[in-house]
Amino acid sequence: MRIIVYGSLRRKQGNSHWMTNGQWLGDYEIVGYDLYDLGHYPAVIPGSGKVYCEVYRIDSSTLGELDALRTKSGEYKRVLIGTPYGTAWMYVYQRPVDGLRLLKSGDWLKRDQEP
């Protein structure tokens, strides 16, 4: 199975160790989503922007661990998204984003360069 990561799970980010057993397939830009800054990690919701991501092949054990990390509190839900590498799971934020900073670049790695 494949997963799309867009924030702290990306390479050289704070939670990238979760991808250690995954196989990086490539970078991808998803259109029709917006990226918000939650502080230590981001949120993606359907919108009108684009989000820069990485796509990985992972095993079911890793997916289970990520589900426990991301979906247990209801903060995110997992949805299937089409990519050039095949369909992939992505975690979409489920809470209101009012008052959160929209990252117009769509790139978590450039968050410190935005106002």
Rank of each mutant, 00 (worst) to 15 (best):
M1T: 06
M1N: 06
M1W: 00
R2L: 01
Y6M: 06
Y6H: 07
Y6I: 05
G7D: 07
G7K: 05
L9R: 05
R10N: 10
R11E: 13
K12A: 13
K12G: 13
G14W: 11
N15E: 10
N15T: 09
H17P: 09
T20P: 09
N21G: 08
N21K: 14
G22K: 05
G22M: 12
G22F: 02
G22Q: 04
Q23W: 11
Q23S: 14
Q23C: 12
W24C: 11
W24D: 15
L25D: 14
G26A: 10
G26V: 08
D27P: 01
Y28E: 10
E29C: 15
E29H: 14
V31Y: 11
V31H: 14
V31W: 09
G32Y: 10
Y33R: 05
D34Y: 11
D34T: 13
D34N: 14
D37N: 09
L38C: 06
G39E: 02
H40I: 09
Y41N: 05
Y41D: 06
Y41C: 03
P42Y: 08
A43N: 03
A43L: 02
V44L: 03
I45S: 04
I45Y: 09
P46M: 08
P46G: 10
G49E: 09
K50Q: 10
Y52P: 01
Y52L: 12
C53V: 06
C53S: 09
V55W: 01
V55Y: 04
Y56K: 01
Y56D: 02
R57T: 08
I58Q: 00
I58K: 02
D59P: 00
D59L: 04
S60F: 05
S60D: 06
S61V: 05
S61A: 03
T62Q: 01
L63T: 00
L63V: 00
L63C: 02
G64M: 01
G64D: 00
G64H: 00
A68V: 03
L69E: 02
R70W: 11
S73N: 03
G74N: 04
E75L: 07
E75N: 01
Y76M: 03
Y76R: 02
Y76I: 00
R78S: 04
V79T: 08
L80R: 14
G82F: 13
P84W: 03
P84G: 04
Y85A: 03
Y85H: 08
T87S: 10
T87D: 15
A88P: 07
A88K: 06
W89Q: 02
M90G: 07
Y91N: 02
V92W: 05
V92Y: 08
Y93T: 04
Q94F: 09
R95A: 11
P96Y: 11
V97G: 00
V97Q: 12
D98F: 14
L100S: 12
L100Q: 13
L100Y: 10
R101G: 04
R101T: 04
K104C: 08
K104E: 15
S105A: 13
S105D: 10
G106V: 02
D107N: 14
W108R: 03
L109A: 14
K110I: 12
R111D: 10
Q113L: 13
Q113M: 13
E114N: 07
P115C: 10
